[in-house]
């Protein structure tokens, strides 16, 4: 029993620190990724010349290559052409670019799911393209897109573990460090898994609330 208490004493400050890093990565990349995803979706839906093609290329590249490779390219590759980031920035950048591509596809799907008649109605009242998007289409698209957006955001929480490969002491690397001191891989990896699960489950709660809020208007 004492052994367990000792292990807990050694592990918890490090794991807590790692969890906070993980949360920070997840939250910042989520916010930036949602903004980026919305922009990319807009450019593609509006068929902005050149930008739309560029956006399609970006989405294809991000979805078609492993996140691990993207992280390596940004952190270890780019310095080769004089662009250097500290590990935290590189991590946030990689996660944002990656999740932004997935989120943009969900949003594009949501926007396409809103009936053409809603566009016609907004435009016929004199609203411009952007006003119709903002006040009429986007709110309805968001409701359609929430389940698929949430999928990507939950994946993002877990994907933060990959930035451990560029020396960021988030939850995964923190766990490894404690294991290196204590030689107790099973309980510590299980603890890390439990923490990821708790984070994801908390996010599912957020998703439920958002869904309930967006569905309010549709009660009969």
């Amino acid at each position: 029993m004492d052994a367990w208490i000792d292990l807990f004493r050694t592990a918890w400050p490090v794991l807590l620190q790692g969890t906070l890093y993980t949360l920070m990565f997840a939250v910042i990349s989520m916010v930036l990724g949602l903004a980026l995803g919305f922009l990319v979706a807009l450019v593609r839906v509006a068929r902005v010349p050149a930008l739309a093609q560029l956006a399609a290329f970006y989405v294809s590249a991000m979805r078609g290559t492993p996140l691990l490779v993207q992280i390596f390219v940004i952190y270890y590759g780019l310095p080769g052409i004089g662009i250097e980031f500290d590990p935290v920035t590189a991590g946030v950048l990689a996660l944002t670019l990656n999740v932004g591509a997935y989120l943009s596809e969900s949003m594009r799907g949501g926007i396409a799911g809103v009936d053409r008649g809603q566009w016609d109605a907004g435009l016929s009242l004199g609203l411009g393209w952007w006003q119709t998007m903002r006040f009429v289409v986007a709110p309805q698209a968001l409701r359609l897109a929430v389940p698929s957006l949430s999928n990507s955001l939950i994946s993002l929480i877990k994907d933060t573990s990959l930035v451990s490969v560029i020396t960021v002491t988030e939850l995964m690397l923190a766990t490894k460090e404690v294991i290196a001191q204590t030689f107790q891989p099973l309980p510590l990896y299980l603890a890390a898994a439990a923490i990821y699960w708790v984070l994801s489950a908390s996010f599912e709660q957020v998703q439920r609330r958002v869904e309930a809020r967006l569905n309010l208007s549709y009660r009969r």
Partner: peptide, 11 residues
Amino acid sequence: MVFQHFELFPH
């Protein structure tokens, strides 16, 4: 303009 399917904004 008035449409066949009303097109009120449901939200």
